[in-house]
């Protein structure tokens, strides 16, 4: 069996890379994908804690986080599509107004 701390370290690295992506990109879809990456890193931490303590609640939180991520992607893409149809672009620099 592998050490739980290694899984947590993998989660930390993935979180950092996702954070870097949200800093570097202007394209809203790529930023959304990097946020997904950070959510997955959090899930890895839950799984590591569940493995260490033998507690199933970490798995439950992971399942809940995955379901919420699905809802977040649906809403985020709907917002981006509506932004694209009104502004003609999804660059985050161009989106400055909440109403037109």
């Amino acid at each position: 069996m592998i050490e739980p701390s290694w899984i947590a370290a993998l989660g930390a690295i993935l979180f950092g890379v996702g954070l870097l992506g949200t800093f570097y990109h202007k394209n809203a879809i790529v930023v959304l994908m990097c946020i997904e990456l950070m959510l997955n890193a959090a899930n890895l931490n839950f799984v590591a804690a569940a493995l260490h303590y033998g507690d199933v609640n970490g798995w439950v939180f992971t399942a809940i986080a995955i379901a919420i991520a699905a809802a977040e992607v649906a809403i985020g893409l709907a917002i981006l599509l509506s932004l694209y149809s009104t502004q003609g672009t999804i660059s985050l620099d161009a989106a400055r107004e909440l109403r037109n």
Partner: peptide, 25 residues
């Protein structure tokens, strides 16, 4: 990059990993 290094170090050396892992549910 510095944040990743600090996070990994803090996570790997956290005292909670000290006691034996209980195994997976």
């Amino acid at each position: 990059f510095a944040l990743i290094l600090i996070l990994v170090r803090a996570l790997m050396e956290h005292p909670m990993w000290g006691d034996e892992a209980a195994g997976s549910p």
